[in-house]
Simulated assay, not measured.
Amino acid sequence: MSDAKTLPAAPRDWAEREIGGVAEIRDTAHPRRNSPVWELVRPDGCRFFLKVSRTARSYERETLALRHAVPALGAGRAPQLRASSAEHLALLTTAVPGRPVRELALTAAQEYEAHRQGGLLLARLHAAGDLTGRRRAEAEGALCSVTQDADRRLEEAGDRLTEAERALVRTLTEQLRWVGPLPLGFIHGDARPRHLLWSGRAAWVGFERSRFAPVVQDFVTLACGVWADRPRLRTACLSGYGRELTPQELHVLKCLAGLDAVSALARGDEHDDPPLAAGGRRTLHRLMTGVFV
């Protein structure tokens, strides 16, 4: 068996017991992600993925998602949970056909269809899960949690922000405190092109930030990223989703984009990721010039 030096022995042994032996291990973690991921290949060629969460909260979120909400996407549209270990904070999932859309040389028609199907799958996900009791309370309080985190994000950004930008983000954040009821659901939490796979059919992966929340929160990363350059993909995604965002959701999207941009500036420098920081800077420019949504 080939080895991956960074895969700890304990979760590796657990995974091997679960799937009946491993012939090859490949480190597939994204450089900026907090959760390491390995592809495990059995002697018969069958592939699985082993993720070790950095925190118990991430482990619990992704386990809940894979058990109770993600199956609503349909076969081949998301990973299936093969096993999980609270002891190791580890999840073992099946492989999903396809590669991230951002890594593929797709035609315009293929890219449009991938994002349309991505929106369709988000609609299914948002309607999944049991939105009652404490989970509804969690969803209803999600924006409050965001506003409470604003000061930390602004402090981390430091002098990367001008005073005018800082004032705008504070104003937008404050407006989140007065938002009325919004459509709620179970969100992916990190819906971006690297988590959208395409093989002729779309699939979503990467559910460690999944939770109950206002569904508009699932569109922030897209609105700050690929939608800015290619509005046609926004049309595709929302066509698949089945509806346009409401005026109130559009306003919340704008408010959340400010905080997302602030975080991108700080994380981009911290992780030596100029494209991430540039994306944050671009979003702030769009907000400052009034052309965001």
Rank of each mutant, 00 (worst) to 15 (best):
S85E: 03
S85N: 02
S85Q: 03
S85K: 00
A86Q: 00
A86Y: 03
E87K: 12
E87P: 01
H88D: 10
L89V: 02
A90P: 10
A90F: 12
A90Y: 15
A90K: 14
L91R: 15
L91I: 15
L91C: 07
L92E: 02
T93N: 03
T93W: 04
T93A: 13
T93Q: 12
A95T: 15
V96R: 00
V96M: 07
P97K: 09
P97R: 08
G98T: 08
G98K: 00
G98H: 12
R99P: 01
R99C: 04
P100G: 08
P100A: 10
P100W: 15
V101K: 07
V101Q: 01
V101R: 12
V101G: 03
R102E: 05
E103W: 03
L104Y: 13
L104D: 13
A105W: 07
A105P: 14
L106G: 01
L106T: 05
T107E: 07
T107N: 10
T107P: 07
T107M: 03
A108G: 09
A109C: 05
A109D: 15
A109N: 03
A109G: 11
Q110A: 06
Q110W: 02
E111Q: 15
E111N: 13
Y112D: 09
Y112Q: 07
Y112N: 12
E113M: 14
A114C: 08
A114W: 02
A114H: 02
H115F: 15
H115Y: 13
H115K: 06
R116D: 03
Q117N: 11
Q117G: 06
G118W: 02
G119L: 06
G119C: 12
G119P: 13
L120A: 14
L120S: 01
L121S: 05
L121F: 00
L121R: 01
L121G: 09
L121I: 04
L122G: 00
A123F: 08
A123I: 00
A123T: 04
R124A: 15
R124S: 13
R124F: 13
R124M: 11
L125T: 14
H126R: 04
H126E: 10
H126L: 04
A127F: 06
A128G: 05
A128W: 13
A128M: 14
A128D: 12
A128S: 15
G129K: 09
G129S: 11
G129E: 02
D130T: 00
D130L: 13
D130Y: 09
L131W: 05
L131F: 02
T132H: 00
T132F: 01
T132M: 03
T132G: 08
G133D: 13
G133S: 08
R134N: 05
R135G: 03
R135N: 01
R135E: 07
R136H: 03
A137F: 02
A137N: 01
A137Q: 11
A139I: 12
A139L: 11
A139H: 06
A139W: 07
E140L: 10
G141R: 12
A142P: 06
A142G: 12
L143Q: 12
L143G: 06
L143I: 11
L143H: 08
C144N: 07
C144G: 05
C144S: 05
S145E: 13
V146K: 12
V146C: 04
T147H: 06
T147P: 07
Q148R: 15
Q148C: 02
Q148G: 13
Q148V: 05
D149I: 00
D149A: 10
A150G: 04
A150V: 12
A150T: 06
D151S: 09
D151P: 05
D151N: 00
D151E: 15
